Lab assay of single mutants.
Amino acid sequence: NITNLCPFDEVFNATRFASVYAWNRKRISNCVADYSVLYNLAPFFTFKCYGVSPTKLNDLCFTNVYADSFVIRGDEVRQIAPGQTGNIADYNYKLPDDFTGCVIAWNSNKLDSKVSGNYNYLYRLFRKSNLKPFERDISTEIYQAGNKPCNGVAGFNCYFPLRSYSFRPTYGVGHQPYRVVVLSFELLHAPATVCGPKKST
């Protein structure tokens, strides 16, 4: 009989979030998941669920729940959905087409922007091929755009693959930082360890 609440607040209220290319994953298990708490945590810009209804979450049980978190800019949030393409979905964080879970995003301009520009958040701009779903690539190998090998040196047709967002508070919403948490629900042929409040007794 599990009584402890799932530590969603640790994920959502973390002081620092990860850069999207090096997104963070927390496995959540053996706890009571009260998803209604999430609705009250922040004024969400996005709370979209796929393959599951957000209002039914509190009635369900899962084997595992994974919470992935990272920062992107406002106009990239739409890429965090099944079947999307674009720089983020292709080279940084890719959801599977049959994704079961929820994408939660909110504006973090007050936390993640600086007047002089916050350069701490990076994204991958160049990659030889698209990522597979939930693949994480943290390599910093020089990207070869031409025929000549780069031998690890940046220059003509040889690019450092990561680029930094420079978040400034005066930017338009599309270029402001957004914190994203992706909850993916895993149903294996194994005992369910993460249940809503109704199912945990």
Results as ranks from 00 to 15, higher is better:
F47M: 15
R136Y: 05
Y93P: 00
K48P: 00
Q84S: 12
N157A: 02
E186K: 12
L122M: 15
N109A: 07
A190Q: 12
D59M: 10
L41H: 15
F47C: 14
L125H: 06
L5S: 13
S139P: 01
L111G: 07
I138D: 12
N13E: 10
F134Q: 09
C49H: 03
N118E: 07
I28Q: 04
P169S: 04
C102K: 03
N24D: 14
R127Y: 02
D75S: 11
K26I: 12
P133H: 05
Y35R: 09
Y50N: 02
L41K: 14
Q144A: 10
I2N: 14
K110A: 10
I104C: 09
P43F: 08
T63R: 13
S108N: 03
N120D: 13
G74C: 02
D75W: 06
D34T: 08
V77W: 04
L183G: 01
K148M: 12
I88A: 04
C31A: 06
I138A: 11
C61K: 10
K114T: 13
V173Q: 14
G74H: 03
S29I: 09
Y178V: 10
Y121G: 00
Y119Q: 11
R25K: 03
F167R: 02
Y121N: 05
L131V: 10
F160N: 14
V71L: 05
F134N: 10
F47Q: 10
N118S: 07
Y93Q: 00
N120S: 12
P191E: 13
N24M: 09
K26D: 07
S19M: 03
G152C: 06
I138G: 08
L95Q: 00
C195G: 08
N109L: 05
C195V: 08
F167T: 00
A81E: 09
A192F: 14
R168P: 00
S184I: 09
A67P: 01
N107C: 05
I72Q: 01
A145V: 07
E135K: 05
Y159M: 01
P54H: 13
C158Q: 02
Y143D: 00
I138C: 11
A18W: 06
E186M: 08
F45M: 15
C150D: 00
S53N: 15
C158L: 01
A81P: 00
V32F: 10
W23Q: 02
T55K: 15
Y123I: 11
D97E: 13
V181S: 03
C102Y: 03
P7C: 10
L57A: 08
G51P: 05
N4A: 13
N4V: 11
K56N: 13
F99I: 04
A192E: 13
Y50L: 02
W106I: 06
N107P: 06
